[in-house]
Design a protein around this nucleic acid. Structure first.
Length: 489
RNA sequence: UCCCCAGUAGCUCAGUUUGGCAGAGCAAUUGGCUGUUAACCAAUGGGUCCGCGGUUCAAGUCCGUGCUGGGGAGCCA
């Protein structure tokens, strides 16, 4: 009797427990958060829905309130309807722009115009209320103002879109190279060679500034690496070494320039993509650059439709035309010498006189890409005097196998060359330019041991983003821009 | 670094030419109204006119200087 009671009791307990677990499990499943980009794409309603996000705007009525919720997963908000029979309606009514909340309710077809779905809320839990000094309002802000609140600007439509596209483009770079059989090389950011290229470099040191001041000078032999050290201005030399081992490689990472340049196209820290290809000449280099630009552009249009449309509609209405040109026409290829000829015959008056041997000015580059050809232009074979030592000498003895890609509105998007693979030619070039060969012993080694023709270039990631978004200032396509006199955030 | 432009309410800007009470829209606060959607209507609060110096009876306004921001140039990606 007692035994039976006992066993009944246990059975009952187990029954209750298992049912509770099932109930709890179902509850948990029902409470799983759905991101808004997924919600908005639903074909039919799942009934219950649970979201979390930030309130972009709220419109109160007497008996209910409309809220637009954004969770950063996509450009669009979802409209939430909160009736005044919700327990905490008094608090909900006071929710401000920028506040955060989690909302469960029914996903229903919206009776109003402007959206397919809306959520009829059954419960709204307020996570945090933004005070009334929240700087972002539900109106357009200037880019200059938003730069002063760079920590909050990704919460706006435009900057949310920029940085979703930026993320997608970084993925597209790796996808492109994976498909082409390239290896990803993470080149060092700290470098000991101070002649990597032109331009001021940032010094890296572990010396204590106070003791340096006491001694009156920096003793680099006492420094961490025992010599003068800087942040990299390019991963190219590393790239060349690995291209001559793995075949086709690319680097994609941050690059640093300490130039005091105050323009809308320069930042001190930026991201550069640098492919380097063994057994590749200048023509193959251009083929590759063109394919890269086309593939990335195509990817953005396909994978970031809503975000890309924002820029075509509100930032630069000529973008669709540019995309058509990029995707459906061959890029122009012409030599520096031919370009000089075109510029000299141009009716446009230039501030700087055009003659063979000059480095092309912005106005000249813009004329070629924007006025004369109206599409991307590869310019090749520059006079050796205006290019670095590592570019391959052409047979004419006057020009080198350099290539720049000029695009409308941006200017130089890509800069590269076929590299000088002939040891004797490379050495005499270095002598001409008075470079210390002993510092480059390892670079020269690559030409001594199984040297092969190879080529590569650098593409400014931010400049590419400027091109496809129409954004005019490079500070607005990088999360926290570093420029002379400005390192906030 | 050089040239040009700007700095006025939380934001966007008028007022500066010809010196004479500090303004508008949006935002905020309060109330009203409405399946609204940059909602709407009304009321209220809100100022180091970028800083410093000068001219003047009087300076947001004129002059000098500094700072900050923007555009362009150079350099480059």
């Amino acid at each position: 009797m007692h035994d039976t009671d006992f066993s009944r009791n246990i059975t009952f307990k187990l029954w209750v427990q298992s049912n509770f677990l099932i109930y709890y499990f179902l509850q948990d499943k029902a409470m799983e958060r759905t991101k808004i980009n997924v919600v908005l794409k639903l074909e039919k309603t799942p009934g219950d829905i649970f979201i979390k996000g930030w309130i972009r705007t709220k419109r109160n009525a007497k008996e209910f309130s409309f809220m637009e919720i954004n969770d950063g997963s996509c450009l669009n908000n979802i409209q939430v309807v909160a009736n005044n029979d919700l327990a905490n309606y008094a608090d909900i009514e006071k929710l401000t722009t920028g506040s955060s909340a989690e909302i469960s309710g029914q996903l229903i077809e919206s009776p109003g115009k402007g959206q397919k779905w809306e959520i009829q809320a059954t419960q709204i839990d307020i996570i945090s209320v933004a005070p009334d000094d929240y700087p972002l309002q539900k109106k357009r802000h200037s880019d200059e103002f938003l730069r002063t609140i760079a920590h909050l600007r990704p919460r706006t439509n435009k900057y949310g879109a920029v940085f979703r596209i930026r993320s997608e483009m970084a993925y597209a770079v790796h996808k492109f190279y994976k498909k082409k059989g390239f290896r990803y090389l993470t080149a060092p950011l700290i470098t000991g060679s101070d002649c990597e290229g032109a331009g001021e470099m940032f010094r890296v040191t572990s010396l204590d500034p106070k003791s340096v001041k006491k001694q009156g000078k920096m003793d680099f032999t006492q420094d961490f690496f025992g010599q003068e050290t800087n942040l990299t201005v390019s991963g190219q030399l590393s790239g060349e070494m690995f291209a001559l081992a793995l075949g086709d490689v690319y680097t994609f990472g941050p690059t640093f320039r300490a130039e005091n340049s105050n323009t809308s196209r320069h930042v001190a820290e930026f991201w550069m993509l640098e492919p380097e290809m063994a057994f590749c000449d200048l023509s193959g280099n251009m083929d590759h650059g063109e394919e890269l630009v086309k593939t990335l552009t195509q990817h953005a249009l396909k994978e970031c439709q809503d975000d890309m449309n924002l820029f075509s509609n509100f930032v630069d209405k000529s973008l669709p035309k540019l995309f058509d040109t990029i995707l459906n026409s061959d890029f122009i290829r012409l030599t520096y010498t031919e370009a000089i000829d075109i510029l000299q015959k141009a009716k446009t008056k230039f501030d700087y006189k055009v003659e063979y041997g000059i480095d092309l000015q912005s106005e000249h580059e813009r004329y070629l890409a924007e006025k004369h050809f109206k599409r991307p232009v590869f310019l090749t074979d520059y006079p050796k005097q205006i290019k670095p030592f590592y570019m391959r000498m052409n047979d004419d003895g006057k020009t080198v196998a350099a290539v720049d890609l000029l695009v409308p509105r941006i200017g130089e998007l890509i800069g590269g060359s076929q590299r000088e693979e002939r040891l004797n030619v490379l050495e005499s070039r270095m002598d001409e330019m008075k470079l210390p060969k002993k510092d480059y012993w390892w670079y020269l080694d690559s030409r001594r041991f199984g040297s092969v023709p190879h080529s590569g270039f650098g593409m400014g990631f931010e400049r590419f983003l400027m091109m496809i978004t129409g954004i005019k200032n490079i500070r607005d396509v990088i999360p926290f821009p570093r420029t002379p006199g400005s390192i906030d955030f």
